[in-house]
Simulated assay, not measured.
Amino acid sequence: MESSDLDDLCFHVNSKISLIKKTLQLRNIGQDPSLTCVLNKVAHEMNSLHDLLNKLETEVQKQESISRSLKELQATFANNFAEASHMKENIPPHLPKKAPSSNEAKCEPPDVGQAPARAEPPKRPTKEKAIKEMELITVQEFANVPAYMKNRLTYEQINGVIEEVNKAVVGKYKIFHQPMKSLNNAAKKQLCRFKEEETKETKGLFFVVDQDIKEFTQVKVDKRFHGMLSILRHCHRIREIRSKGLVRYIIC
């Protein structure tokens, strides 16, 4: 047997003997009344340390959960910021117009510093009839239009057609609402046509026909134009009433 193996064996045996001695000493300590108090204190401290470690583990898990939530919130904020920046840099030239409120125009209070020399009776305001116009479509509405309808048409082109149709509506009904005496011969002929195109179904509604588009706008009334009108029907901006060979585009 080599000397190194013998040394290792001796070390192993001595370690076992030392461990047995320590075990016997601890056993004797447990039976010594004078050390019972010390052992109880050690046991109490061990229990306290165990409770403290449990609380520390719970707190670490809580902080890890908060850290994960903060990382998710940071990622969400970064995405929202990127989307907002993209929207800011790509604001479309056409946005829906807000319909004017009937109470928008308010009378200004009289100037108390200057008293009028003579009170005049208030003039009766002339009440103009409101003409209904189409609202521009939103980006989301255009995105929901089927691809076969859009073909190669763009969002800006559709809103451009809406503005042109609105011009025709306003031009037509301004003539419609004027007294006959104030109209020239051309406008009188237009008014006669407008009234001939009215039906029971269009009573109280605002509508235009292809001829109105031709007379009040520069839009070319062709297949492409009618394709745009199909998108406006899909977006519930207009609807059609057909009778006597004439298509009437009702403003929704």
Rank of each mutant, 00 (worst) to 15 (best):
E120Y: 13
I241E: 02
F206S: 04
P109F: 12
L6M: 04
T199M: 03
H234C: 05
H86R: 14
H94K: 04
K223L: 05
P179K: 00
P92S: 03
C37T: 15
R248W: 06
F194V: 08
A82G: 00
Q63C: 06
P121R: 11
R152K: 15
K106F: 00
E64R: 13
V247P: 14
Q157D: 11
N166W: 02
I250E: 06
N14W: 10
G30Y: 10
N144H: 11
G227F: 05
L52K: 14
L53F: 09
N144T: 09
V170A: 02
T154W: 11
E215W: 03
I20F: 05
E163M: 15
E83P: 02
K174Q: 13
K174H: 06
E164G: 06
N90V: 10
E164L: 11
I131R: 00
E164Y: 13
N166E: 01
I158H: 01
T58P: 02
H86W: 10
H177M: 04
Q157V: 12
E72R: 14
N54L: 05
A75P: 00
K132G: 03
E2Q: 12
M228H: 06
S67V: 02
Q190L: 00
H86C: 11
I175S: 08
V38G: 03
Q211T: 10
D7R: 01
I241W: 05
E164V: 00
I238A: 04
S69V: 07
L73E: 01
K214M: 03
Q114T: 08
L6D: 02
R27S: 11
